[in-house]
Amino acid sequence: RKEMTAACTPRRRIINLTSVLSLQEEINEQGHEVLREMLHNHSFVGCVNPQWALAQHQTKLYLLNTTKLSEELFYQILIYDFANFGVLRLSEPAPLFDLAMLALDSPESGWTEEDGPKEGLAEYIVEFLKKKAEMLADYFSLEIDEEGNLIGLPLLIDNYVPPLEGLPIFILRLATEVNWDEEKECFESLSKECAMFYSIRKQYISEESTLSGQQSEVPGSIPNSWKWTVEHIVYKALRSHILPPKHFTEDGNILQLANLPDLYKVFERC
């Protein structure tokens, strides 16, 4: 597991931080080997919608929660590849102030007048994250320049770009939802926020969305749709870069829909 690298990086740093090793061990302890084997050997059937997909393993048909699986995938990559990410360069710098204002204007932020003026909160978020810029760049390849612009994001899987519609809320939550006081809790909560931002979430995906850094293989055609990215990038990574937690067998994120021999018997009677 320590050699797990989802995106190509030129050289690998050895990380011996106790906090990170502890988080890696927790993933191992909570892992479910049968689910790992199923995901490793599954045959992708198709997307139901951005949140759900169908896959077959041996004779069984499964309904998989793409949102939760991708979130767990990105969390584990962030923990196992800690401080070893490439950088996704933004085509132009994104001012943190503008991103924070967009987030505060969104109902998702939960902002009320009692929280104070949005401009003041946005300025605080910019200054707060600028103070964390060195650590964010060093460990997470999340790059913020001296003017308070976001200029780079971590490359977690080759050819995958997170849904940038979720970027404003991500920046807001970096400042408000991460435990910045304790090292282990900081790395864990920061990785979880980043994983949620990178995950496939239906509120940020339309039929026209593209999450891939590449064009489709047909010359002159439109960019790959999110469905292509889910199948050929995300579920491909799920084959080798995730140890599913045991609770996925109990919380409805992986559901067995049918045993195909039983279905064949039904059709034979028709």
Rank of each mutant, 00 (worst) to 15 (best):
E25H: 12
K265Q: 06
L54E: 03
G213I: 07
V234Y: 05
V126H: 06
M196P: 00
S240F: 10
T67A: 09
L23C: 10
G110T: 01
F187D: 01
Y139P: 02
N16E: 04
S19N: 06
S189G: 02
E183C: 03
L190K: 00
N65K: 02
M135C: 03
S106M: 02
L102E: 10
K68Q: 10
K130D: 15
P107K: 05
A94I: 11
E188N: 06
R239G: 14
G220Q: 10
L255P: 04
I125N: 02
W228P: 07
T249M: 08
N159P: 06
Q51D: 08
C194A: 07
L153C: 03
G31I: 13
L90F: 12
E143Q: 04
E3A: 07
M4Y: 14
E268D: 11
N259H: 09
I157F: 08
Q76M: 15
I205A: 10
D145C: 08
K60A: 10
L150K: 00
R13S: 12
F128W: 02
S22K: 02
G110K: 01
Y204V: 07
N149P: 01
Y80T: 04
V20T: 11
S191V: 03
K68E: 11
N159I: 06
M101N: 15
P93H: 06
D138Y: 04
E71H: 03
L172T: 02
L150W: 01
E231Y: 10
E26N: 07
E231T: 14
R11Q: 13
S225N: 05
N224C: 07
A83D: 14
H32E: 05
L129F: 15
D145V: 02
G148M: 08
G120A: 14
N253F: 03
V87E: 07
L39P: 14
Q256P: 03
L69V: 07
E146N: 04
D181V: 05
L150T: 01
L243C: 12
T5Q: 10
K131A: 11
F44I: 12
N16T: 07
P154E: 00
L121S: 01
N179W: 10
G31D: 09
D138C: 06
C270P: 14
L136Y: 01
E177P: 00
L21K: 04
E72L: 06
R11E: 12
E182D: 05
I254C: 04
E113S: 11
N41L: 07
V266Q: 15
T9E: 08
E108P: 04
H32W: 10
E147N: 06
L61S: 02
L136A: 05
L260D: 07
R1W: 15
S43R: 08
L255C: 05
L69Y: 11
N149W: 14
L96M: 07
D115S: 03
S109Q: 02
Y75H: 13
I222Q: 07
W111R: 02
S216D: 05
I200T: 11
L121P: 15
D115P: 15
W226Q: 03
N159K: 08
S225D: 05
H247D: 05
N84V: 13
F248L: 06
L99S: 01
P117Y: 15
A237P: 02
L190N: 00
R239P: 07
M196C: 02
G220H: 09
P244S: 14
P245V: 13
S206E: 04
R36W: 15
N65P: 06
E92M: 06
I222L: 10
I254K: 03
S206A: 04
Y264P: 04
V218F: 04
N65A: 02
